[in-house]
Amino acid sequence: MKDLPVISSARPGDSASVTGLSDDTLLVMFARGDRQAAAELTDRLGPRTYAVALRVLGNRAEAEDVAQEAMIRLWRLSPDWQRGQAKVSTWLYRVTLNLCFDIKRRKKPLDIDAVPEPEDSAPGPAERLQDAARHDALQGALMQLPDRQREAVVLRHIEELSNPEIAGILDISVEAVESLTARGKRALAKALADRRAELGYGDD
């Protein structure tokens, strides 16, 4: 598994001048009025914030809103951005997850602690899981995870970020990230195994 984030890497095939520049530099250029910097940052970071929002929320319309708002906040931040202090992508992931959290909180004002951990109990009504999983098996299983586990798994296994970077985004220790991703993966595997059994594939 690669630990390098794909986002800030330059694309060797591109010849345009901005493609080799860091997100950091592009954000400063944006603040100075460079439109090409805006296009390049949208190209690099737009898909990142949308992909994470989509996997965390499991809802396209909400993910679009979150991604657009996260980028708006990035543009607004640009004049005050301190170069070299943090990675732009780390900041953006963090803002994205906060916006996702706000949406979830608005939607269901119930106690987070009241949601049972999938490992400890049955993973919700089987029909609901099957229905969600019919569209996207992974998304169906991801939605069964507690929020923090889902965030860690998405950042680790879909965004392919390093554990230290995930720790920075979630504001927890690297050990806590390892624990969250391990538990998340186990729960996902169990949900998929249950699904295989439900669909009658058998266990080989």
Binding site: F30, R35, A38, A39, L41, T42, D43, G46, P47, R48, Y50, A51, R60, E64, A67, Q68, M71, I72, W75, R76, I158, E159
Partner: peptide
Amino acid sequence: RDDMPEGLAARMMADADRI
């Protein structure tokens, strides 16, 4: 993961231009 829905990138750029 690099796919964005139709129009989202354009909306992001419109926001960027305005801001």
